Amino acid sequence: MRVIGVSEPGGPEALREFDIDERHAGPGEVRIRVRAAAVNPTDTAARSGAYASRQADVSPPHVPGMDAAGDIDEVGPGTTTDLAVGDAVMAVVVPSGSHGAYSEQLVVSVESVVPVPVGADYAEAATLPMNGLTARMALDAMALEPGQTLAVTGAAGAFGGYMIQLAKAEGLRVIADAAADDEQLVRDLGADVVVPRGDDVADRIREAEPGGVDALADGAVQNELVSPAVRDGGQMATVRGFKGDDAAKERGVVFHPVLVMHYNREQAKLDALRKQAEAGVLTLRVARTFPADHAAEAHRLFESGGVRGRLILEF
């Protein structure tokens, strides 16, 4: 089967096609004929070697991709599921070696798979699992009450957009950042207050909420630059493993590093996201699609910045 990956870390040009042995679903697994895979920051980081130490003992190719959508073409023996061959599904993927979403076929645990939202195509569905579950995990960790205030950085991005929409569905007040060109987008996603993005965003958030926000989801990965926006004793969810700075911890701020790999088999939560997409609570945003063999072009565009919505590779 065909996969898109790298034999050595590098720039976008390092991505190329490989033919690897076909895999079959085992007990508790299904195989998906992939139609669409989303391009995420974790993919470009993996391609460039950011996770090389984790792959040191794994033979190439190393295949990125954490979001997939397609059709089930095999159900493993003894697998208990309502899903059947031919069903259109989406899945969250934890890449390892040649196991990644940039693949014609993908074997995953059935607990990582749910139906595609009704009314969504494969490309749209592929935008939801990883970022949606990461946002869900952040909100679960912070366990905020209706009426509390959440700040979101990187609000125009996929994670940030889902954070805003999920937070509003749970009755939270949302302060979000945006560049001037993205302000209307972020308002349309549901933010109550929009402040200018940048290294001084903590000051802007404090202007809107002088006492500091109850919690903050840092999709922009600003870490200690943005933690001053959180009130004493508040909370902050981070997406790249940041565990907090001393100044914030001294004020009692609790940090929640969220890693979607801990939610990759939370099928009920992924299915709840599906239902929210069907209900219009969540917006599935596709920026552009590419044939899978144009993955290098997609990575170049993604790394150039300013992409709103997800770039999708189609098989």
Rank of each mutant, 00 (worst) to 15 (best):
G219A: 07
V221A: 15
Q222G: 13
D203C: 10
V201Q: 04
A215G: 08
G198R: 08
V213Q: 05
D192E: 05
Q222K: 13
E224Y: 14
A202D: 06
D218M: 02
V213L: 02
V213W: 06
R231Y: 07
G211A: 13
P210D: 00
V213I: 05
R231T: 10
R204V: 05
P228K: 07
L225H: 11
A220G: 00
V213Y: 01
A229F: 12
A217R: 02
A217P: 07
E209L: 12
R197A: 13
E209S: 15
V213S: 01
R197D: 08
P228I: 07
L225K: 14
V194T: 02
I205G: 06
R231P: 09
R206A: 10
D192S: 04
A191M: 06
D200P: 09
A202I: 07
G219T: 03
R204P: 07
V226M: 06
R206L: 13
E209P: 12
E224N: 14
D218S: 01
S227P: 12
V221L: 15
D200V: 07
V213E: 02
P228T: 05
A229I: 12
V213K: 03
L225G: 09
A217G: 12
E209R: 12
V213M: 05
G212Y: 05
G190D: 04
R206P: 06
V213C: 03
A191D: 04
E209N: 13
G219Q: 06
D199P: 13
L225V: 09
G190S: 01
E207N: 10
R206G: 11
V230R: 09
P210M: 01
V195Y: 01
E209C: 14
Q222L: 15
A191Q: 00
V193A: 04
D192P: 02
P196M: 01
V226K: 06
Q222V: 10
D203G: 13
L216P: 11
A217Q: 03
V195T: 03
A229W: 11
G219D: 05
R204A: 14
V194G: 01
V230E: 04
R231I: 08
A220H: 00
V226F: 09
V194E: 03
G212S: 03
L225Y: 09
N223I: 12
A220K: 00
A215T: 08
E224W: 15
D199K: 13
E209Q: 15
V201K: 01
E207S: 12
A191C: 06
V201D: 04
L225C: 09
N223H: 15
P228G: 09
P228N: 11
N223C: 12
D203S: 14
E224H: 15
G212A: 05
P210N: 00
A208H: 04
A202H: 10
A215C: 09
V193W: 07
G212V: 04
A215N: 11
A191R: 05
A217C: 10
I205Q: 03
Q222T: 12
R206N: 02
E207P: 09
N223S: 15
G198H: 09
A229L: 12
G190Q: 04
G198F: 11
I205F: 04
S227E: 15
L225I: 03
P228V: 08
N223W: 14
